[in-house]
């Protein structure tokens, strides 16, 4: 069964973490996901535009939603960035809560002939859905189907989930409840791929990225502390659904190590990379050579990790 999605890759996945966008493109066909890229859409604002002007952030994201709703045959919109998920969910909450406000924002968008519809399927129907790849993986594709597609189980690979903030809080807005334990999905995916889940203190804490330009010391201390906690818990690597977390955890890792005064050398994988690896792709096809802490230099995929290569 294939699924067609209006695909919003975000900015950073095409900027400083190009391996994220690339690995998603490589993994999608293996999961029968058809990606229709929203190439005219704009930055979600990452909370900063909302901090500057809420109406502006709401308008920009309503525009992205409207573009997604124009994609023929797409069941939903999919993103690969937790920060996009959080910032867009916040805007969607306001847009969906108040018809008058929605009409106001749509008047602005009418300049481009765009309209955001709260219930695209007709009045009272299902509301507009925007899911991170992590949620789509568990809820639309399903863990059993994922398990069936694993070609190279991540046997003995000890993976620490790093959720970050935007995709787990606030719970109500992000639709997290006992039926949708989205704040545990990374662990479920790691298990489905045959890996071992490592629990550690920083799983759902802040990577520090949002204050890197304002308070570098505190920011790097956050990244360094979580990486160190994961190391102490004996993780081989971390996996994250957020490219901004990746920037602070990987790109800045040498500085984070200095900030906490210890060696870290902790590889951090993007979610599609971890999935791709288990589905049989090679580290190079997944852009792992682009990481600052190269997963391949720390982990020997060919022997230690890969149980039975197909």
């Amino acid at each position: 069964m294939s699924i067609k999605v209006a695909y919003w890759p975000g900015c950073v996945s095409r900027g400083f973490t190009p391996e994220l966008h690339g690995s998603m493109a490589a993994v999608a066909p293996l999961l029968d996901i058809e990606l229709v890229e929203l190439d005219r859409a704009n930055c979600c604002g990452a909370g900063v535009i909302a901090e500057h002007n809420q109406e502006l952030a709401d308008t920009l994201n309503a525009r992205t939603f409207a573009l997604a709703q124009q994609v023929q045959g797409a069941e939903l919109m999919m993103n690969i960035c937790s920060t996009c998920q959080g910032a867009q969910s916040e805007c969607q909450e306001r847009l969906d809560a108040n018809a008058e406000y929605r009409a106001h924002v749509n008047r602005t968008l009418s300049a481009e002939g765009l309209t955001y519809k709260k219930d695209p399927g007709g009045a009272g129907g299902a509301s507009f859905t925007n899911k991170n790849f992590l949620w789509l993986l568990v809820e639309e594709i399903g863990l059993d189907a994922l398990r069936e597609r694993v070609k190279r189980p991540l046997t003995n690979l000890k993976v620490g989930p790093f959720y970050g903030c935007y995709i787990v809080r606030p719970r109500e807005r992000l639709g997290i409840d006992s039926e949708h334990p989205r704040d545990h999905y990374l662990a479920q995916v790691i298990e489905a791929l045959g890996g071992t889940v490592i629990s550690y203190a920083g799983e759902r804490k802040c990577c520090g990225f949002p204050i890197i330009t304002m308070n570098k010391e505190a920011s790097l201390k956050q990244a360094g502390t979580h990486l160190g906690d994961a190391k102490d818990a004996d993780a081989d690597c971390l996996v994250t659904p957020c490219p901004l977390c990746h920037l602070n955890l990987d790109l800045q890792q040498p500085l984070a190590a200095k900030a906490v005064g210890r060696e870290l050398q902790m590889p951090v994988l993007h979610l599609p990379q971890l999935v791709g690896l288990a589905l049989g792709l090679e580290p190079k096809q997944l852009g792992m050579q682009r990481h600052i802490v190269r997963p391949t230099s720390v982990i020997d995929w060919s022997t230690a990790v890969v149980g039975a290569a197909a």
């Binding site: 909370g47 959080g86 903030c165 809080r169 606030p170 719970r171 802040c206 204050i211 304002m214 920011s219």
Partner: peptide, 15 residues
Amino acid sequence: PQGIYDCTHCFKCVQ
């Protein structure tokens, strides 16, 4: 330096 711009936007307090 430890005022409004020191908040890391983590939503912990909101939750």
